[in-house]
Design a protein around this nucleic acid. Structure first.
Length: 822
RNA sequence: GGGCGCGUGGUGGAAUGGCAGACACGGUGGACUCAAAAUCCAUUGGCCGCGAGGCCGUGAGGGUUCAAGUCCCUCCGCGCCCACCA
């Protein structure tokens, strides 16, 4: 008889079995309490890599565990199948993105099967599926009707490498494209935007309600970037022009000694005096040419970065004239593109004032001994006329705003850093924006009965900087749905982040043909109870999905009461190799297939669970393979236990002894511990506990008196139940071998520890002298303060440590600890 | 420049303010074997000691506490996010 564990045979068998038995298909009418587990749907880049394995291992553990706990678990999967890599590959291979994408999906699906992940495959959703495209377009149209989608000319981020416009979120801090690494340029183009800013305040406030990693919430908060302040206008001396400025510190306005405009500000030509014209024009031209990265760097001499316009503005607070400058550090895209400069209370203004010899007037009294330059802290007002009585910033701010409003000069104002979401892309492999341009009717969104607009397959892929749709005359030329006259289709496609902004709603019922989201199904399943994905989506995807959920609800396309799509979020750590993230574009992928073919999927899953805290990054090194082999070693040990092949005497039949009872207790403690570790996402320590218990059972089986058969069997069964969400194939196989044909470990109830068996009769009392460990004494678990103190003082080791000195104080924390202080 | 983390053996890591190093990887020794692999057992933070045992030890320095890897302050190092945001 061959008992050796054949991972490949066992895994293939159970993967087939789960599929045949529809093990993780779930009905929307299931009466059990619902639990929605979702891993961020993957971009299909080919066979899985270790990042996927990690993600789907965590996801599958939750799916199987929650199912065993009695929930009706929704576990769908889909593919984020539009996007640039497929199109770039098509250009390179002179082929088409569709077959390329379909092949990559097939590869990734095969990996997921071989990992043993349990999904409701019937609910599969793919972004490039015509049904999904249709509803993407339906939603776009409804956004358009509601004013949430609009078109405007804007300075946009243009990536010369990708030949497309990028969202702000896709431009890295150094001004390069997150995908191609090319330096992003600014271009003025007509683009489509989603009015995400309409929900800025709402999304900011509701962050409080989410059970998300604090880090992610902070990132979203900063990205939305709410600042409270005031907006007001200033007259330009000798001209009818008015300059609007936004400031967070209206309380310091008496200290404004100059005004700075962005070089692109529309008032610049009007404000420039004839004497300054040449210099200003040269300056503006130079800033225009400057790459974004240089403009945003704080390097370089300040005196080269600004220019005087020759005009003066009147500070409404003092009535005095202050010079108007241009500077490249003032951005047209934030606030009003103009600032009041208060050098005494803003370091940047201080530096500028110093470079240009402009006056500095303190309006906040710095503390005694202040030696810094600009003082941004709190303090009493000075040099501020009617504000001088104010003792702190908030009081002064309120008074200043009140004054601005009563004089009709300005008002309270909230600014956001968040920009509207630029969604149009000049690429082919995306969802077409369902709009036509008609000479008579202008911009016309297509009616729903003309959707979906599908991508024609017979297109030429050439890196021209224009969508290939542009040169496809049958696609381009159409008729206007309003007047029936000739019209041209929009040839831009949607950002792929649009696709991923509502797929989780579609999973609730992906079969509807009339509406994108089945409201009843969405009310049943949403919100997602556990969302799992990479930290790299902390801002983009997670913010867009929150926006979409709100917007769909407001338009009646989603449940109106549903604000937040993801109740609990877990962001897993990245897998790094040689210090960089493992990714296809970096060419440092380690494919899981070689492990499936050797140690098996279960061993690889155990490795990802065991290697460290799930939230932490980990480095894939030369030693990693031996750790993975160690995980297989653990499974082999469990296999030998479960297949009644453990070393030592086989189980004997007898009345339970104290040693047997210890095993029962240890088993219940294990149940308690693993359950708690699973709850808090501490899979590494949960696996450690199971390994520890396996070691305990080995020793138990090898004692001279032997293991009691019944006790050992129960403990092994429990171990298999606890291990079932982690190593599903092997536990399924052992369970069936032990319990008979048709027995299914994953259909069992998750074990519950008996509280009486968790309680201990005796505990080890730690005895310290002056905080140092001196002895350990066994005492009754019920020992009182007096009893543990007596036990501690009775210890010869304690007596030695005391060396005759009298205890000055005894701290007793029964039953675990006594500290004797001398 | 701002914000948020993190720093523990040779390595990955564990530790509700209460026994630092669980569980592993690697190492060492042993059993089994003609031998090897596999398996099983023991041991493995550093220093001193034949031993019992003792001393030191969680990036550095200070503080709070009977008690600090854990809390507070300063500094050093690393990582991530944001960044002339008015």
């Amino acid at each position: 008889m061959n008992y050796a564990y054949d991972a490949q045979e066992v895994e293939a068998r159970w993967q087939g079995c789960w599929e045949q038995e529809h093990a993780y298909e779930v009905s929307n009418e299931d009466p059990r309490p619902k639990f929605y587990v979702l891993c961020m749907y993957p971009y299909p880049s080919g066979p899985a890599h270790q990042g996927h394995v990690r993600n789907y291992t965590f996801g599958d553990l939750n799916v199987r565990w929650r199912t065993m706990q009695g929930y009706s678990v929704l576990s769908p999967i889909g593919f984020d199948s539009f996007g640039l890599p497929a199109e770039n590959a098509a250009i390179k291979l002179k082929s088409h993105p569709r077959p390329f994408t379909d092949a990559r999906i097939a590869e990734l699906m095969s990996s997921l099967h071989r990992l043993g992940a349990g999904y409701d495959w019937r609910r599969l959703v793919r972004s490039h599926d015509p049904h999904y495209m249709k509803f993407n377009q339906v939603i776009f149209r409804r956004f358009f009707d509601a004013g949430l989608a609009y078109r405007k000319k804007a300075p946009v981020n243009w990536c010369p490498g990708c030949n497309t416009v990028l969202a702000n979120e896709q431009v890295l801090a150094d001004g390069t494209c997150e995908r191609s690494g090319d330096l992003v340029e600014k271009k003025d183009l007509e683009q489509w935007f989603f009015r995400i800013t309409a929900y800025a305040d709402d999304m900011l406030a509701d962050l409080e309600l989410l059970d998300w990693p604090e880090r992610v919430k902070v990132m979203q908060r900063n990205w939305i970037g709410r600042s409270e302040g005031a907006q007001f206008h200033m007259e330009v001396a000798g001209s009818g022009a008015k300059i609007e400025v936004f400031t967070t510190r209206p309380d310091t306005a008496f200290g404004m000694t100059f005004v700075v405009l962005a070089p692109e500000h529309p008032l610049v030509p009007e404000l420039t005096t004839p004497e300054q014209r040449d210099a200003v024009e040269a300056f503006v031209e130079r800033v225009r040419q400057e790459p974004e990265i240089e403009r945003q760097s704080s390097e370089g001499a300040l005196d080269k970065r600004g220019i005087f316009t020759g005009s003066y503005a009147v500070n409404p607070f003092t009535g005095k004239q202050v010079p108007i400058y241009l500077a490249d550090y003032v951005l047209m895209g934030y606030g009003t593109g103009a600032i009041m400069a208060v050098p005494a209370e803003d370091q940047r203004d201080w530096d500028f004032a110093t470079a240009y010899g402009l006056p500095i007037i303190r309006t906040v009294q710095p503390p005694e001994g202040w030696e810094g330059e600009a003082y941004t802290g709190d303090g009493p007002r000075v040099n501020s006329q009617w504000l001088d009585g104010a003792q702190n910033t908030s009081e002064a701010k309120a008074k200043a705003i009140e004054w601005l409003e009563s004089e009709g000069i300005g008002k309270r104002m909230v600014q956001y850093r968040l920009r509207d979401w630029l969604v149009s892309r000049q690429r082919y492999w995306g969802c077409p924006i369902p709009v036509v341009y008609c000479d008579k009717d202008g911009i016309v969104a297509l009616p729903e009965d003309q959707l979906p607009v599908l991508l024609p397959d017979d297109v030429e892929f050439a890196p021209t900087g224009e969508s290939p749709l542009r040169s496809h005359s049958e696609f381009l030329n159409t008729t206007c749905p309003t007047c029936g006259g000739p019209a041209q289709r929009e040839t831009d496609t949607m950002d792929t982040f649009v696709d991923s902004s509502w797929y989780f709603l579609r999973f609730c019922n992906p079969w509807t043909t009339d509406v994108p989201v089945d409201l009843e199904a969405a009310r049943h399943w949403m919100p997602v109870d556990q969302y799992i994905g990479g930290i790299e989506h902390a801002i983009l995807h997670l913010l867009y999905a929150r926006f979409y959920t709100r917007a769909l609800g407001d338009l009646g396309l989603g449940p109106a009461e549903l604000k937040e799509p993801f109740r609990r979020l877990f962001t897993q750590g990245m897998i790094r190799m040689d210090g960089t993230k493992m990714s296809k574009s970096k060419g440092n992928l380690i494919a899981p297939e070689k492990y499936f073919d050797t140690v098996g999927a279960d061993a690889l899953r155990i490795f990802h669970l065991f290697v460290g805290p799930p939230a932490d990054d980990f480095d894939w090194t030369d030693q990693t393979d031996t750790v993975i082999e160690g995980c297989r070693h653990f499974l082999d040990r469990v296999w030998r236990l479960g297949a009644a092949e453990a070393a030592g005497t086989p189980g004997v039949s007898r009345q339970p002894s104290l040693a047997d009872l210890d095993i029962v207790k240890a088993t219940h403690k294990l149940v308690d511990r693993v359950t708690r570790e699973f709850e808090r996402w501490s899979y590494n320590t949960a696996i450690a506990a199971m390994r520890e218990h396996t070691n305990v059972l080995y020793r138990y089986a090898q004692t001279p008196e032997g293991a009691r058969a019944e006790t050992l069997d129960e403990s092994i069964d429990t171990l298999l139940l606890l291990l079932a969400p982690c190593a599903p194939h092997m536990t399924a196989e052992l369970w069936e071998r032990r319990r008979g044909q048709g027995a299914r470990v994953h259909a069992q109830r998750w074990p519950v520890a008996d509280p009486e068996l968790l309680a201990e009769d005796t505990v080890v009392l730690v005895v310290q002298v002056n905080g140092k460990l001196r002895d350990k004494v066994e005492v009754a678990a019920s020992a009182t303060e007096g009893e543990v103190t007596a036990a501690a003082l009775a210890s010869p080791k304690v007596a030695a440590a005391l060396a005759g000195r009298e205890p000055a104080r005894v701290i007793a924390r029964p039953p675990a600890l006594v500290n004797i202080v001398v």
